[in-house]
Amino acid sequence: MKKYSLLIISVLALLLAACSSDATSSLKTADIIKVFKDDGLEIGETSELEKKEFGNTREEGIRILIPSLGEDAGGRLFKFKNKKDLEKAKSYYDELGKEAPMFYSHTHANGNFLLQMNGDMKDQDFEKYTSSLDKALK
């Protein structure tokens, strides 16, 4: 009986993990933008990114304008197909900022989502976006 109880518990744990993974994998970038807005974060116009920005490695990419950062300033929200491609993209932005400080940007990854925001955004403001993203993916 003990053997079967352990087996049942293991199967249930796997099912729960799969269900929670499915819930976050079905989220789209538009869902995250809605969470940002619902949380009272500044979101200006949004637009789909061209495929040249990480091409086939991503599922979705959206440009976010943040009016308080200036004209045509804001960031990007990507949903990648896998963690490896997400890490390459995050590394690209992080290394770009190290090579030339004028290209510094904030980056935050959670699940298969990558948030990249203009480096002119204050750290405490960026933390609000990362908290909102993290909350949406729980």
Rank of each mutant, 00 (worst) to 15 (best):
A109L: 02
A30W: 00
F113P: 00
G111Y: 10
S47T: 07
G61N: 08
G97V: 09
F80L: 11
F80M: 13
N56Q: 14
I43W: 02
M117H: 02
K28A: 08
L133H: 01
A89L: 10
S25V: 00
S131K: 11
E53S: 12
G44A: 06
L114V: 05
L7E: 13
R63H: 11
S68V: 01
D72L: 03
E99V: 09
F36H: 06
V11R: 07
F78E: 05
S131I: 01
D85L: 07
A109G: 14
I64C: 00
L96E: 15
K98F: 07
S105L: 02
K83V: 11
Y93H: 14
A109E: 13
I9D: 09
D72A: 11
M117N: 04
L77P: 02
C19S: 08
F113R: 03
F80V: 13
D39M: 02
L16Q: 09
F78A: 07
E45H: 02
K122C: 01
E99Q: 15
S91G: 12
F113V: 06
T29G: 02
E99F: 10
D120C: 00
P67E: 03
N56I: 11
A136T: 06
K3M: 07
I9H: 05
S20R: 05
G61R: 09
K122V: 03
C19Y: 10
D72G: 04
I32P: 04
A100T: 13
K122R: 12
R63A: 11
L133I: 06
A30G: 06
G74A: 03
R63P: 00
Y104M: 08
L15P: 09
A89W: 05
Q116S: 10
N110L: 07
N118H: 10
D125L: 05
A23D: 00
L14K: 02
I66N: 03
E87L: 12
A109F: 05
S5C: 02
S47Y: 09
L114R: 06
A17L: 14
S105P: 02
T57H: 11
E59V: 15
